[in-house]
Design a protein around this nucleic acid. Structure first.
Length: 267
DNA sequence: TCATTAACCGTCG
DNA sequence: CGACGGTTAATGA
């Protein structure tokens, strides 16, 4: 079923397809596929762009396909009855957003909102099922991704149940540092804007509590915020503050896949 | 709109 | 009782 474009043929929108293919290439879901095969997938997908703070899909809505984030930042959340939000997680390229819904074809489990201007490759569900038939390796890739998410959720649930507000906020910051941290001198900068509300939603506390805790940390000089860009100045002290050493949760699963040489790993 | 502070108050160990 | 954290209100940027 895989079709390479005929040589010499002028395919309408060929440039766009190449663009999609280029964006897709880095996605773990299609790793193991060759150029032609990725091009084949790209030809049946489309690119969508969203401004900051736009809904991509909503919890409960039927899943029409898979959104692969190729540029920007996304947060996944549950909207709760009292109007508060619980942020399930944050995503960077090239994450498959709410892969579980795309795989089982049931309703989305979360609402996805862009945190910054973002770009996605949308792979329709029909194409996904074809993909699974044509390239079994994508099934394994998907399982791999899903396993990672299960592990992440498991740890997140444990942290939510067992840690107090400081612990949850500290863990949130460390997870963000793992996922999005860029070295900036001796500090680690989380490379996109996050409001106190975002941190609070992720940690499961109110904004005021997030502020209370983060103000203390700023006064101790372990973190700093500049225009909603959070930097962790002293990662050791953050970890000490939340008893990282004695914590048995393996938060290494929050590191973005590849050459996982994160300096945050304990032991 | 976001960040911050502070007073107040209920829960729980 | 006292720590913790949610609620509410006020203020400034």
């Amino acid at each position: 079923m895989s079709r390479a474009p005929t040589a010499g043929t002028v395919v309408p929108g060929k440039d766009q397809i190449s663009g999609v293919a280029g964006a897709l290439k880095a996605c773990a879901l299609v790793s193991g596929l060759d150029e032609t095969e990725i091009y084949d997938v790209a030809a049946r997908s489309s690119v969508m762009r969203f401004k900051t703070n736009r809904r991509i899909f909503e919890e409960g809505e039927d899943c029409a396909g898979l959104w692969v984030l190729t540029r920007g930042r996304v947060r996944l959340l549950h909207l709760m009855a009292d109007g508060r939000q619980h942020a399930v997680g944050f995503h960077a390229p090239t994450a498959a957003i709410d892969l579980e819904a795309a795989v089982d074809g049931r309703a989305y489990m979360t609402t996805a909102v862009t945190l910054t201007d973002s770009e996605f490759v949308f792979v329709p569900r029909l194409v996904l099922t074809q993909l699974a038939e044509d390239y079994p390796i994508t099934i394994r890739n998907a399982m791999q991704q899903l396993c990672l998410e299960v592990r992440q959720r498991d740890i997140t649930a444990a942290i939510a149940a067992l840690k107090d507000a400081r612990g949850r906020i500290g863990c949130t910051l460390l997870q963000l540092a793992r996922q999005f941290g860029v070295q900036d001198g001796s500090a680690i900068r989380i490379d996109y804007p996050l409001t106190r509300q975002h941190i609070a939603d992720r940690a499961g506390v109110t904004v005021e509590t997030a502020i209370r805790v983060m103000s203390e940390m700023q006064q101790l000089g372990v973190v700093a915020t500049d225009n909603q860009i959070i930097s962790i100045l002293d990662i050791i002290r953050v970890r000490e503050a939340i008893n990282c050493e004695e914590c048995q949760f393996e938060c290494g699963v929050f590191a973005e896949q590849a050459g996982n040489t994160t300096p945050l790993r304990r032991r």
